[in-house]
Simulated scan of single mutants.
Amino acid sequence: MRNLSALFLTSMVISVAYGQTSIQGVVKDGSSMISMPGVTISIKGKAASTKTDATGKFQINASPTDSLVFNFLGYRTQTVYIGNQTQLNVFLENENKALEEVVVIGYGTANKNDLTAPVSNVNIENLTKRTTSNPMQALQGSVSGVQVITSGAPGSSPTVRIRGVGSLNNENPLYVVDGMFLDNIDFLNSNDIENMSILKDASGAAIYGVRAANGVVIITTKRVR
């Protein structure tokens, strides 16, 4: 019994000496107010750390002079000084980092800045706002260096020039729709397009062959989810 009492007193002395107390709290998304599981909470300058549980709650032992650092991917890191607080409600804000522009190419996707060939991404939202019967007609004036010429005859297909009027044999570009090679996209509705990229020079032939000598229009259609 005396040994137990001595052990208890020793624990109390150590606790007081270090000045640690149990800090509890909950972490939520600052916009939606939804609890966030898996947030890492560490004591600044120390090795101790923990994570929030499935309900966004956490518990960690720290001293009043410590600061807690809250870290979660995609959110701004937040540091909170403890002081005399034992219960914390922490709200994390989205980091809102701009994503690198991704281009769909013949063998997958790539960051636009990593490509040597001139590539343009088409703003699909603006494309669908135009009342045209063909998505290439809607492209007129949307991408620099691309000419769309219409004859005005009912049902006629527009003539598209990606590399200017000096293109080989004045041929239209190669259309690649969901990986299929096509000569035209008259059948396609602008509202069915998820993204569209245009390869502007003959280097597209290295991916798609000689048919891509006049440029390539790469289209991915929307999928039913």
Score class of each variant (00 low, 15 high):
I162S: 00
D178S: 13
G209E: 08
N96T: 10
Y208N: 11
E101R: 14
N191L: 09
Q87V: 14
M196P: 00
T150R: 06
L115A: 03
E125G: 03
V119G: 00
Q147H: 03
N172Y: 02
G106F: 08
M136F: 07
S167K: 00
T77I: 08
L182D: 05
L127K: 02
P64A: 06
L73D: 10
N71R: 11
G106W: 06
Y75F: 14
S190T: 12
G141N: 13
T21V: 14
G155I: 04
D192P: 01
I41H: 01
K28F: 07
G209A: 10
K57V: 10
F181D: 15
E171Q: 15
R2F: 08
A212K: 06
L9H: 08
G25E: 01
N172H: 06
S197E: 03
N172V: 05
T221C: 07
S144N: 14
G164H: 01
V102I: 15
K46C: 05
Q140N: 13
V143A: 00
F58E: 00
L174M: 13
Y75N: 01
M33K: 11
M1K: 07
Q147Y: 02
G179N: 11
F187E: 08
V160A: 00
E125V: 09
V216D: 01
V90L: 04
S31F: 12
S32E: 05
